[in-house]
């Protein structure tokens, strides 16, 4: 068992194993499950993630109270264009992130990772990375283990609630989880996985939670897209050998403290940020008339 990043990393280095190995051992000890049972659970989780990341791509999901109907399909169509700035792969990844957000808003089945509002990031990033790397299912599920190990530490020592810590605690944490996962999938060292998670969190330090009408839709969907990119770029920074000067445990603590410093208007109450703009308020009024 580990209680912070330092302990998790130390054990991986001592045993000369990836982070996912340590996370798996701890999970088996904590829940008294066998390795097969843990992997069976992960397989089911990933199949739901895969479905939510793809089912709004081909056609929009209609829903009475959704402000984001069609966002995934739009990005999916665009992703085949060769002249886009990010290229087909990254645009497809954003489409996938949007797909989970759209599924969530349309009352479809999703897996909170770590929350429903941030549920698009881990699936989109891991799915896209797996295709890019040609990774098999075992590697993908190990990636999920590493992602959830990081997520568990942040849940334990800080927060993953937008109401408590802002968007940095939801989409930011999801990006950190995903970044660590794909560095391991790409063959990076445990230390590099940790660096990637640090970069991802540092890149969103202080991001507020300002949902229009208090609903998990806007800007949430677009933040799922942008934080997926954050996960990829943070992974590349770490794999290039960039070193984050601040240890991840301290970055997590800083994120937590920053969240607490945010006024309540910027923590999921829809009283600040884009939710409190005249147009944001008008959209809220219209949606509750329906």
């Amino acid at each position: 068992m580990y209680t912070d990043v330092q302990e998790l990393l130390q054990r991986a280095i001592e045993e000369n194993k990836p982070l996912s190995f340590v996370v798996l051992q701890s999970e088996m000890k904590l829940t008294e499950k066998t390795e097969e049972e843990v992997f069976a659970g992960l397989k089911q989780t990933f199949s739901i993630m895969e479905k939510s990341a793809t089912n709004a791509l081909e056609e929009p999901l209609n829903s009475v109270h959704s402000l984001i109907t069609g966002v995934a399909h739009r990005q999916f169509l665009y992703s085949s264009q060769e002249n886009s700035f990010l290229g087909p792969v990254l645009n497809l990844m954003m489409a996938r992130a949007l797909s989970s957000s759209e599924t969530n808003a349309a009352m479809g089945l999703i897996c909170a990772a770590p929350t429903a509002g941030a549920s698009g990031i881990v699936p989109a990033v891991i799915l896209t990375a797996a295709e890019h790397l040609g990774a098999d299912q075992k590697k993908v599920l190990e990636g999920l283990l590493t992602a959830s190990g990081i997520g568990a530490i942040i849940t334990r020592n800080a927060t993953v609630s937008g109401a408590e810590g802002g968007c940095q605690a939801e989409c930011g944490v999801a990006a950190a989880m995903a970044a660590a996962a794909i560095v391991e999938m790409a063959g990076g060292r445990p230390q590099q996985c940790i660096e990637a998670a640090s970069f991802a969190l540092i890149n969103v330090m202080g991001l507020i939670c300002d949902p229009i009408a208090g609903l998990v839709q806007l800007p949430c969907a677009y933040r799922n897209a942008s934080q997926s990119i954050n996960a990829f770029l943070s992974a590349d920074l770490a794999l290039a050998g960039q070193v984050c000067p601040i240890p991840l445990d301290e970055v997590i603590d800083a994120m937590f403290k920053t969240g607490k410093m945010l006024p309540m208007q910027l923590r999921e109450t829809a009283l600040g940020g884009i939710a409190a703009t005249p147009t944001g308020r008008k959209l809220a009024e219209e949606i509750y008339k329906k």
Partner: peptide, 23 residues
């Protein structure tokens, strides 16, 4: 307090909100 990975990757739920819908 130790946290299961299935509490991090979860709940598996119908959207949109773990508190307002799933709860």
């Amino acid at each position: 307090m130790h946290i299961s990975i299935f509490d991090v990757l979860g709940p598996i739920m119908i959207g949109p909100s773990s508190s307002h819908t799933a709860g």
